[in-house]
Design a protein around this nucleic acid. Sequence first.
DNA 1: TTGAAAGCGTTACCAC
DNA 2: GTGGTAACGCTTTCAA
Lengths: 332, 332
Amino acid sequence: MVQIPNTPTSADVARLAGVSRATVSYVLNDTDAVRISEPTRRRVHAAARELGYVPHAAARTLRAGHSRMVLMPAPAVPVGPLYHRFLGELQAALGRLDYTVVQHGAVGQGDEAARAWAELRPVAVLAPGSGLGPHGVAVLKRAGARAVVTLGPARVEGAHALLMDHTVVGHRAAAHLYDRGRRCIGVLLPEEPGLEFFSHPRLTGVRRALNGTDATVTGLPLAYTERAASELAARLPELGLDAVFAYNDEYAMLLMRALEDAGLRVPEDIAVVGADDLMLGRLLRPRLSTVRLELPSGRALAELVDHAVRHPGAEPEVRTVLDATLIHRASS
Amino acid sequence: MVQIPNTPTSADVARLAGVSRATVSYVLNDTDAVRISEPTRRRVHAAARELGYVPHAAARTLRAGHSRMVLMPAPAVPVGPLYHRFLGELQAALGRLDYTVVQHGAVGQGDEAARAWAELRPVAVLAPGSGLGPHGVAVLKRAGARAVVTLGPARVEGAHALLMDHTVVGHRAAAHLYDRGRRCIGVLLPEEPGLEFFSHPRLTGVRRALNGTDATVTGLPLAYTERAASELAARLPELGLDAVFAYNDEYAMLLMRALEDAGLRVPEDIAVVGADDLMLGRLLRPRLSTVRLELPSGRALAELVDHAVRHPGAEPEVRTVLDATLIHRASS
DNA sequence: TTGAAAGCGTTACCAC
DNA sequence: GTGGTAACGCTTTCAA
């Protein structure tokens, strides 16, 4: 017969220490409104340690009326080193401000997800812009979220916004290619689901940058397979393109290999520009020109969240945070 | 003056519907022990919708004595596509079994992390093996976790274990290189923190595979920079190596570029084997031989978790799940 | 078929 | 300084 251990509560600690539950709470939370004698404090701490007492977050939340939980959806696509570092910084900074950061696996789409998150009564929600509409924001706020921050291309009614507008990425790539004399520009559009939220704005950025010039823009859907890449490479000459903005460095590598196999020279026949400035691009030959993204510091976002939590009535803040620089190497 | 909305409770729903709180609970949870008349059900549902009622997970947890939360630490290093897919599958499968999967950002090390997790009273914890000792497992179980599953190289007392022993990866690479006639084998060891939990076992696997043969094994620490790689490449001839197992495909790419720049031919002078079977390896020239990992299906792990939760007294299950196959291409 | 009430673990107010 | 007590939102007996 296996004994399932009963979770010790603050009442158990109180009993063992010979004090009341209130005193236990005072001691363990270092409440400064009330002063507890040193011997009592020691007895309480000893009892807590002996029992292995761990406070019950749900009970505390219920009592307090709000949690310290900051909720983020877990990314649906594998994140690159850049965004991963950003997330790590953010978590660390929020942790230092005494928040608990929790990533919630994607549930349904849109408002269904918002409902699932609302059940946890997070004090703040950081959500990639797509998939959270004004209604979702309202649900979260009604459930006590004191700050809802969207990270995405457009602001959402009622929520703070960190505008991460990927059009700037396409814009930088296009401006560079145009400067280098290219006039027929293809834009790789990954067919993998979940990437369209990045690829479409990047295409739009290219279009906008070249609007009113003599350059043409062609969208090139591409699956992430060698076969699809070689088929595309074969079609490129008849499309008359002299440059491709390849969505990111990985797709650029795929394309460059296919171009080489098809006998097309980079950059003489076709210039290629990637994005994300991965190590990979520096290792390619020719070295890959790329658009490097600049994310906000995790610390800055953590402070925005903290400020929003402390001033829930304030006007939603809208901040444009994504910037991008072109890094020119040999492929363009 | 901004009105901060008060979160509606089941009492509000009851009031609006003109019934008791108990009835609301019955209706919204489809309790089958009690039958509620259809008109009443409709009134309750209508009231809930009108108020935008969302149940309070913490209150429910408190009352029920246990949550449906499965806790996993958020990965400390960016995860590749393979592991990301595994995680996605796992989350979906657990979601179908009505669990809420939550990733908790790394806090401290070891038992401090266990304590932080225990505060959330998860019904199950899935933790990468390192960083959770027997004491941490005990803390979690005492806090009501009905299943603790470690994913890692060794089992931990009291916890179920999915043994993911990366020695097999090194073993496959070494056996292959030996078969190809290589006798002086280097093993790349990334200097990036957090990777040693994978790289050391892989090195051990290489050592074991070659134990008792005439082959030698040399560990090669390497930072993920071009400079470090070219320094290493320059040193390779004097080390007399004829093969390198490069930890993974990305490090292999870094090394191969440095080897080429140093005038060393792959595979003639030095054979290179990567791991993880990324697209990248197929795009390199020569195409990269690699060790492909086979993770368990997320569904299988979800079932193990569910079974463990329903039979908390059962003996901890220990299952070896990691397998690896060598994919031979041109680099070895 | 519905309602009243107890209790989950915690903390904050108010007496002692 | 310390202890009793009520309340947070919810579910679930038990009674009506």
